[in-house]
């Protein structure tokens, strides 16, 4: 029986209490930020910022609407980070996708592989420079949730936008909510995460298309075509071996042979 987090973006008011609660519970320091023209801050997830609200402005007629998205690790059933990890430091533990901090070497491959840009190995150190370390991300507050407590972000959410519990129950709740939204002026309302990448353990109730929020409409597994990629490289090497090398040096050899024949 897997648990999942339900994120109802139609209720989120972007207070960002979840961001603070996450940092507090997980002992992650604050980041030096500056005004970059948006209330959204810090601008990106990092190795010390595991969840944040992404602000997307959308023009509808003369009105500007805000779309809020709680970003963070989706704990995918088919997790790209787990597949590409060269040391096996990333693994599934039930619904959790966890990084063994004692085994990770900090190569950064999972950072490039994640379809949601949710895992990072770089953060701003206290002196303002960049520091590279092991890969870090949302762990669903595994120390809380294995003790029957909700994740810190869920516990703190004042808008009732976040839920935590059995995935099937969360799915049922999400679908009910999507129905309510569709009936009350949000025809594009949809559920995200039920089937993507074998099923995510973050389920989103969205009022617009996923891509309007900056989510991939059809997230891809990083290694889904890796066999064909190897083949592409090897075939290219074969073509190069055949076309310039074999042809040219065969010609040279034939020329040498004929010249040698004349000389005798």
């Amino acid at each position: 029986m897997a648990n999942a987090m339900l994120i109802d973006e139609s209720r989120c008011m972007a207070c960002r209490g979840c961001q603070v609660a996450c940092k507090q519970w997980n002992d992650n320091p604050a980041e030096e930020t500056h005004n970059w023209g948006s209330y959204e801050n810090p601008p990106e997830l990092s190795a010390i910022t595991w969840t944040k609200i992404k602000f997307t402005e959308k023009k509808e007629g003369d009105e500007v609407k805000w779309l809020f998205l709680k970003q963070g690790c989706m704990h995918c059933t088919e997790a790209s980070c787990e597949a590409v990890c060269p040391t096996g430091a990333i693994s599934h533990q039930g619904q959790y996708v966890l990084v063994d901090q004692e085994w990770c070497i900090g190569c950064g491959y999972c950072v490039a592989a994640c379809p949601f840009d949710a895992i990072h190995s770089i953060f701003e150190s206290e002196d303002g420079g960049e520091q590279k370390a092991t890969a870090r991300k949302c762990v669903f507050c595994v120390d809380r949730t294995t003790n029957d407590l909700p994740p810190a972000c869920v516990k703190t959410c004042p808008a009732n936008a976040l839920g935590w519990g059995d995935r099937d129950a969360m799915l049922a709740k999400a679908k009910e909510r999507v129905g309510v939204l569709q009936a009350s002026g949000f025809p594009k309302a949809n559920l995200y995460g039920e089937h993507e990448l074998g099923g995510l353990h973050r389920l989103y109730v969205l009022v617009d298309r996923p891509s309007a929020y900056g989510l991939p409409d059809a997230p891809k597994h990083a290694t889904s075509t890796v066999g064909a990629q190897w083949l592409s490289g090897i075939v290219t090497a074969g073509v190069v071996a055949a076309v310039p090398f074999w042809l040219l040096f065969k010609r040279q050899r034939a020329k040498e042979a004929s010249e040698g024949g004349e000389g005798q």
């Binding site: 790209s80 590409v84 491959y109 490039a112 592989a113 994640c114 379809p115 997230p219 891809k220 990083a222 290694t223 889904s224 075509t225 890796v226 990629q229 190897w230 592409s232 490289g233 090897i234 290219t236 090497a237």
Partner: peptide, 18 residues
């Protein structure tokens, strides 16, 4: 030499992915 390319294409960055 194949691996140096596969390393990048087995990711989710638009310039490399798949």
């Amino acid at each position: 030499i194949a691996y140096t390319g596969v390393l990048l294409s087995a990711t989710n960055q638009p310039m490399w992915s798949g």
